[in-house]
Amino acid sequence: MTTTKPTGIGKLFVAVCLIEGLTWTGLLIGMFLKYTTETTDLGVRFFGPVHGGAFMVYVVVTVLAALRLRWPWWATLIALVAAVPPLVTIPLEIWFKKRGMLTEAPAVR
């Protein structure tokens, strides 16, 4: 495994993974407050739409990154499925970074 710094769309993918994970966290806390403690639904009202938008951006950026960085089909599928369970995009991004999948190959001259 080679750990490399993400470049270009890889950096964008890292940022979107983090945002998607943070909005998931906010939504989970909001759902806890709404359904368990029954104190407020503000977290769900705020983080529901924010997370929905982050999810959609994640899907688009994942497809663009897969095409630009030439991911194999299985990596693209794992990346798309990783957005469904809470907080899986963050370890996925770390794993992809360790595998060198977030760096564009240098142009051949």
Rank of each mutant, 00 (worst) to 15 (best):
F32Y: 15
L27C: 02
H51Q: 07
K34V: 02
I29G: 07
C17S: 15
G21Y: 10
G43D: 01
T25A: 15
E38Q: 15
V16D: 03
E20G: 07
V44A: 01
G52C: 01
V50L: 15
I29Y: 13
M31Y: 08
G26Y: 03
Y35T: 04
T36L: 13
L42V: 10
L18D: 09
L33W: 09
R45T: 07
G52Q: 03
G52F: 02
L22H: 02
L28W: 09
Y35W: 12
G48C: 08
W24Y: 11
T40A: 06
I29R: 09
C17W: 11
E38Y: 13
E20P: 08
F47M: 10
T37M: 14
L22F: 06
M31A: 14
L28K: 10
L33R: 12
L28T: 11
V44T: 05
L42Y: 08
V44Q: 00
G52L: 00
G30S: 06
A15D: 06
G43Q: 02
L33I: 08
M31W: 08
T23N: 04
M31I: 11
E38A: 14
E38R: 15
G43S: 02
T39P: 06
F46P: 01
L33Y: 09
G26V: 03
V16I: 15
V16W: 08
D41P: 03
G52S: 03
T39R: 15
T25F: 15
C17T: 14
M31V: 11
L18T: 14
G30K: 01
T23A: 08
T36V: 13
A15H: 13
Y35Q: 08
W24P: 02
H51E: 04
V50Q: 02
E38L: 15
H51Y: 07
E38S: 12
E20R: 04
E38V: 10
P49Y: 05
L27T: 00
T39W: 14
E20A: 09
Y35A: 03
E38I: 09
L33Q: 11
T37A: 10
L28N: 08
L27P: 00
